[in-house]
Design a binder for these strands. Sequence first.
DNA 1: AGCCTATGCGAAC
DNA 2: TTCGCCTAGGCTG
Length: 304
Amino acid sequence: MPEGHTLHRLAGELSRIFGGHVVRVTSPQGRFAESAALLDGAVLAGAQAWGKQLFVDFGEDRFVQVHLGLYGTFAVHAVHPDPDPDEDGDHHDTDPGDTDPGSVVPEPVGQVRLRLVRADAGAWADLRGATTCALVTGAQRDAVVARSGPDPLRADADPGRAWQRIRASRSPIGGLLMDQSVLAGVGNVYRAEVLFRQRLDPLRPGNTLRRGQWQAVWDDLVELMAEGVRTGRIDTVRAEHTPEAMGRAPRKDDHGGEVYVYRRHGQPCLQCGTLVRTEVLGGRNLFWCPRCQPRFRSRAAASS
DNA sequence: AGCCTATGCGAAC
DNA sequence: TTCGCCTAGGCTG
């Protein structure tokens, strides 16, 4: 779940449900208890994501930095998904027969590192299994952001910064896309899928890409990841390759989306039928279609 | 019920 | 280079 789209979606949810409201902050598990106590009862100003990093703003130069890592989750629950539909409105849909929202928050189950509660709306959020959950200052947040490459999900991103790194590197493009200092927010699924869609060999050295190819990768990521934020899943297949269009069974997998190559090794490519391959690159599983993404041959290698 | 694996990354070795 | 994080869905039995 946690590629950039997950964190941006979370930032939106947290801002919408908790933003501008007093929240109770606890650490049922205990590992964040000291910091939680400092924040308890503060107004949550909002939340923002940069790549896979999430920062929840509690004002007074206090931010909770969250990184979900491989299997962390930050589950947001609300009795009413949109708690303030008509703040300046003329009608209130508050139902007197509603369950007391303050009483619906359940006892924490399992290792809940951080819990946010907005009792008046019956809303709560539980963080589990995160790599990072830390109280930081604005300067510390800025330092993290400064170390990150441009994020396709941010309007202020400059793809040229990533291009400068890619064009100067002999590392495989498949590795560069996963390097958060080159590009922020792309994980193993988007990496595999965007390379397939752009017909690029994952092992092709960054410095052999043409500028137009990089631009196409960036534009595709902007579109794919924005859709991921909207839907909460990673779908990358074009209309002609959906299960309905092809008359095939939909994917049954924990990330739910329809993809071309990610974790489809040994199965036929949706575009050409060649069996999808996998190999470990830099400790991560890489997936690609050897026919749609033919091995790149440099000029020097081709002429020798 | 138990086992395996995973969309990630920083610390420890 | 390996480990920890300690979740959660899919698969095996």
